[in-house]
Structures are given as C-alpha cells and as structure tokens.
C-alpha cells in the first residue's frame, strides 16, 4: 500500500500519503492512511461524522502535523517533496498559489467585509500583481466563470446568498490556477437546487482545468457526481477504496453497504 503504483507509465502522482496517522492524546482521529492522487483526479472521502475525514483533509493540506506517516507533494518543478520538511513560507506560498481550499462555511474562506473583486484578486496581489486594471479584469472574468453577475463585483460577500458565496469562494481559489483543490463539504448547508448548480459548475471547472481535487463529504451524491475514486472512512481508518461507481454500486464492506443503502430514494 505504501508504494504508490504507476497506472500510466509517464504519469506521476501529484500527492502521496504514506501511513498517515493523527492522535489526540489517546484518541486516534486517523490511522494508517495511504494513497496516491494523480493529476486531474478527483478523490472523494466519505464517511459519517467523526470518522476522521476532516482531520485527514487537514493533514493532507499540511494544516495539521501528522503523528505518524507523511504527505509528499509534487511541486511545479516536478520534484516530490515531503510537506513536513517545507519551510513555513514555502508551505504558505503553496497554499495560496498551487492549492485551493474550499471551506464548508464560506465565511471562513472569504473576507466578508471586502468586495467580491478584492476577494478574488487577493491571491493575485499576494503573488505580486500590481496593476489594478488587470486584477479587476481577472476578477470579473472569474466571476463570470462561476456564474456571478459581474455587476456585483463591488459588493461584499456579506450581501451574497449562500450559493453565491460558495461560488465566489471557488473563484477566489481558482484564480491562481492551482493544480490541487481541497474541498471540505462544499455543498453543506445549501438547498438542493443550489447544490445541483454548484456541483454542475464544479464538475465543469474540474474537467476544464484538469484539476486534481480531494473532496470530503458525507453526501454520497456529491461523491458520485464529482469524483473518480472514493475512500470510505470509519473510525479513523480507510475501510474501502476504489472507483466511485464500483464502490457505490457494489459495496463490499458491511459499513459501506449500510452507507449506500441509507440514501433516500429520489
């Protein structure tokens, strides 16, 4: 499990997790998680509350230090590097250029008091863009791409609806053309029609930009729509992993069967 296999000869993994674990004292939040994520691949992590999904996401995005194991990431220069060995400056730079992080609560991922345009432009300014006109053009083109009326570019996200906030958050993350996006329950707390629209948008963006993504969700419909592969977690362990259709249509583990059968019929 530790040795990531190479399905396509010349294609190398973007992110590799090896025997990843996290303990909070005697409590084990996450244990022995290993996998490799390839460029353009969308991986869904599903499981019930408390199964260690969010801890895993924080470990993978280097926001938490693991108690065991390690996470490596292939930088833009093609070198696979251990995230724990990166300096803080490098890690933060990675976080705001090559990575995106979509929070469940948009208020955590956005600056609620500054305008939508500045929210989208912040990452550009952080990497040294110094031309107002160009920053604004980039911001408005991204607002268009996530289907937000560009007339609202100067409005603060406070005045936006939940679905718009979430789309704005996505635009803010994608503006630097990251290669990997972490999503923590991206559709949580949205009503069904808004969810559908957001999922549709995300699916298009992911395939258009060739993004790799790790989506944490308890909603199997989200996993089915977005992801290529699924990892099922329970009690901090990965109990089943495989292609999305395979896992959801023909679950092997009793817990996965329970999870799949508990979806209300549409």
């Amino acid at each position: 499990m530790a040795e990531p296999q190479d399905p396509m000869q010349d294609d190398q993994p973007l992110l590799v997790a090896e025997h990843l674990g996290k303990n909070y004292g005697r409590l084990t939040a996450c244990r022995d998680v290993s996998f490799a994520l390839y460029p353009g691949e969308v991986l869904a992590v599903v499981g019930e509350s408390g199964s260690g999904k969010s801890t895993l996401l924080q470990l993978l995005s280097a926001q938490l230090a693991p108690s065991a194991g390690r996470v490596s990431y292939r930088m833009r220069d093609g070198v696979l590097r251990d995230l724990a060995r990166l300096g803080e400056a490098e890690r933060r730079f990675l976080f705001r250029t090559d990575w995106g992080y979509v929070h469940q609560d948009a208020a955590q991922g956005l600056r609620m008091a500054v305008s939508a345009g500045a929210n989208v432009g912040e990452r550009l300014m952080a990497v040294g863009w110094n031309h107002y006109g160009r920053i604004r053009d980039a911001a408005s083109s991204w607002l268009e791409r996530v289907e937000i009326d560009t007339a609202r570019i100067d409005d603060a996200p406070r005045t936006y609806s939940g679905g718009m906030r979430q789309r704005l958050q996505i635009a803010r993350n994608l503006v630097t053309e990251p290669r990997l996006v972490f999503m923590d329950e991206p559709t949580g707390g949205l009503d069904v029609s808004v969810q559908a629209r957001l999922l549709d948008l995300m699916r298009n963006l992911v395939s258009e930009l060739g993004l790799a993504a790790i989506v944490v969700t308890h909603d199997l419909a989200v996993a089915r729509l977005l992801s290529h592969r699924v990892m099922v977690m329970k009690g901090g362990r990965v109990i089943e992993t495989g292609l999305t259709d395979q896992v959801l249509d023909d679950p092997r583990e009793p817990y996965t069967q329970l999870l799949v059968s508990s979806i209300l019929p549409a």
């Binding site: 600056r111 305008s115 345009g117 952080a126």
Partner: peptide, 10 residues
C-alpha cells in the same frame, strides 16, 4: 503583503 493591496484595491 498582498493583503495591503486589497485595502488599496477596495
């Protein structure tokens, strides 16, 4: 210091 420019942008 990207954030400082956010203020000027605003």
């Amino acid at each position: 210091y990207g954030l400082m420019h956010v203020k000027l942008y605003e």
